[in-house]
Simulated scan of single mutants.
Amino acid sequence: MNLASPEDAGDAPVAEQVREGDRALDGNTVSARRDDWNAIVDSIMPGPAQQVRIERRVILRISPARPAGPSRQNLTAEVPQQERPRTRLVERKAGNCIESARIGGVSDRGDRLLILMRDRSMMTARLEKGCSPRDFYRGFYVERSDDGKICVNRDRIMSRSGAKCQIDRFSQLVAEELD
């Protein structure tokens, strides 16, 4: 085995074994290869930052109205029946928007959605042409707007099955006495 002496090496960097008494490291050999290290460090660094946009999106779920169960139907079974005036429900024109926080439930009734409000009033919603209220019998989703309202020809309601429709008109159901 032929070992060359350090004088034979010329200008090439020489690696020396650290002895027990030596505590300092010579950084010259590492810094002399700085370009090699930069390539490695640059490969793991993240690239330049691009514009980041954070959006907050709130989707409201309007659940179907709960049917009156047997316990609810029996609450008035023992109450004596009085002569009640005969009434019918009539649709009256309502505004173009309703507050989504006031909605308590939804059901389909023929060609309209029946919207039950938390204050026990009822509204109907006529959907745009080509949309069936039957698609929304299990409730619907709507993206919350800045004003917190669902408006005619502005907001789209989405059924759980994927149908998307706009509301053409709101009406309020009002009890009217029959003569």
Rank of each mutant, 00 (worst) to 15 (best):
E20C: 03
E20V: 04
E20N: 05
E20I: 04
E20H: 03
G21A: 06
G21C: 05
G21E: 09
G21W: 04
G21H: 07
D22V: 07
D22I: 03
D22W: 01
R23H: 04
R23Q: 03
R23T: 04
A24T: 00
A24K: 02
A24L: 04
A24E: 03
L25P: 00
L25H: 00
L25Q: 02
L25T: 00
D26Y: 01
D26P: 00
G27F: 04
G27K: 02
G27E: 01
N28I: 00
N28Q: 04
N28P: 00
T29G: 06
T29W: 11
T29Y: 09
T29S: 08
T29Q: 11
V30S: 07
V30L: 15
V30D: 05
S31K: 03
S31M: 07
S31V: 02
S31F: 11
A32M: 04
A32F: 02
R33S: 13
R34A: 14
D35S: 10
D35G: 05
D36Q: 13
D36V: 10
D36P: 00
W37Q: 11
W37H: 11
N38Y: 05
N38H: 05
N38M: 13
A39E: 10
A39I: 03
A39R: 14
I40M: 15
V41K: 09
D42I: 00
D42E: 13
D42V: 01
D42M: 04
D42L: 07
D42G: 02
D42K: 08
S43F: 06
S43Q: 08
I44A: 10
I44Q: 10
I44E: 08
I44K: 09
I44W: 09
M45C: 05
M45Q: 11
M45R: 13
P46C: 07
P46N: 09
P46I: 04
P46A: 12
G47S: 15
G47H: 13
P48L: 15
P48D: 14
P48R: 15
P48G: 13
A49F: 05
A49K: 11
A49V: 07
Q50W: 07
Q50M: 15
Q50R: 15
Q50C: 14
Q50Y: 11
Q51H: 07
Q51S: 10
Q51T: 06
Q51V: 07
Q51D: 08
V52T: 14
V52L: 15
V52M: 14
R53A: 06
R53H: 05
R53Q: 08
R53D: 04
I54P: 00
I54F: 10
I54C: 09
I54R: 13
E55Y: 04
E55D: 12
R56G: 02
R56Y: 03
R56H: 08
R57H: 08
R57I: 10
R57M: 11
R57T: 09
R57D: 09
V58G: 00
V58S: 06
I59P: 01
I59E: 14
I59K: 15
I59H: 09
L60E: 04
L60P: 00
L60M: 03
R61D: 06
R61N: 06
R61S: 07
R61H: 10
R61A: 08
R61M: 08
I62L: 06
I62P: 00
S63D: 11
P64H: 12
P64M: 11
P64F: 08
A65V: 08
A65I: 07
A65T: 11
R66F: 08
R66W: 06
P67G: 12
P67K: 12
P67N: 12
P67H: 12
